[in-house]
Design a protein around this nucleic acid. Structure first.
Ligand code: FES
Ligand code: FES
Lengths: 145, 145
DNA sequence: GAAAAAGTATGATAATTATCATATTTCGGA
DNA sequence: TCCGAAATATGATAATTATCATACTTTTTC
């Protein structure tokens, strides 16, 4: 459904959301340990997210990655957008140039209801809201823990 | 969402469903032309589907691929199962070993409703039913036409 | 019963994606 | 102000996926 890269990015950001702020940063090394995501690969992903202001970073000693309030307000979808681009999730499942109701492919009516729900959810739920569920500690688990 | 291979396979089978039966077969060459799917690649996919009895084939002159009544009764999901396997669509979107409500990942509640609807639809709609919509000619279009 | 037309089997190449490695920049602290 | 700790930039390798090619088998037709 999501690419490997997006899975990793989502997992990492969820960690950052629940465990960091301006005063408590996390180094890639530690994130990599907690999440079981290869360090160098994760570093590249975080760099992309940082460059696009989805997450925040400071260099040097005592530095690391973290989420600001701004970051937390972004929709979960932003993460996927930066890593995978928009095409993968939004395009026609059979490969038509654009997916719309006027010129639908044979599967359009079949898959579009659920696709629309998924996209809508990802676009409207913020990273903060998602992390909120986690902090309530109501049974969610994070890959690699 | 689906792999490239699955897209191709779905497109090809939809063609077969609407244009073939025991008496009217289609050669890969023609299917490839109609669908814009690379011939040799398509051939490999059709061979897999044929080997798993999702579609039917006869060799030699006047031969080709076609769908029997049996074939048509199979759920659309079978095509994806044969080509991609079950893991891609059913597994946890963040990569947990198995996706279930007891040990959900942070995104489980977010994506599972739509994922469930999608899987349910794919598993319960037969190839025949899907083709039925097409034959009514109610505005569906097939990639490559 | 030979020749050509189809699918079948198998493997080679190309493109993409995942992973690893390393040099560079920035910053905090001794 | 210099050293080391962190992110950043860039590129190399490995694995997977998409694509191409080719030899083999079955079946119709003459
Ligand atoms: S046109 Fe194919 S999914 Fe919408
Ligand atoms: S556990 Fe991750 S999607 Fe269900």
């Amino acid at each position: 459904m999501f690419s490997n890269s997006s899975k990793y990015a989502l997992t990492a950001v969820i960690h950052l959301a629940s465990q960091t702020d301006e005063a408590h940063k996390k180094m890639v090394k530690d994130l990599s340990l907690y999440t079981d995501i290869p360090k160098a690969y994760l570093a590249k992903l975080l760099q992309q997210l940082s460059k696009h202001q989805v997450i925040s970073a400071t260099k040097g000693p005592k530095g690391g990655y973290y989420l600001t309030e701004e970051n937390r307000k972004l929709p979960v979808y932003r993460i996927i957008e930066v890593i995978d681009g928009t095409h993968r999730l939004e395009s026609c499942v059979l490969g038509l140039e654009d997916c719309n109701a006027e010129n639908p492919c044979p599967l359009h009516d079949l898959v579009n209801p659920s696709k629309a729900i998924l996209l809508n959810t990802l676009k409207h739920m913020s990273i903060e809201e998602l992390a909120g569920k986690l902090n309530k500690n109501d049974g969610f688990s994070i890959p690699g823990t």
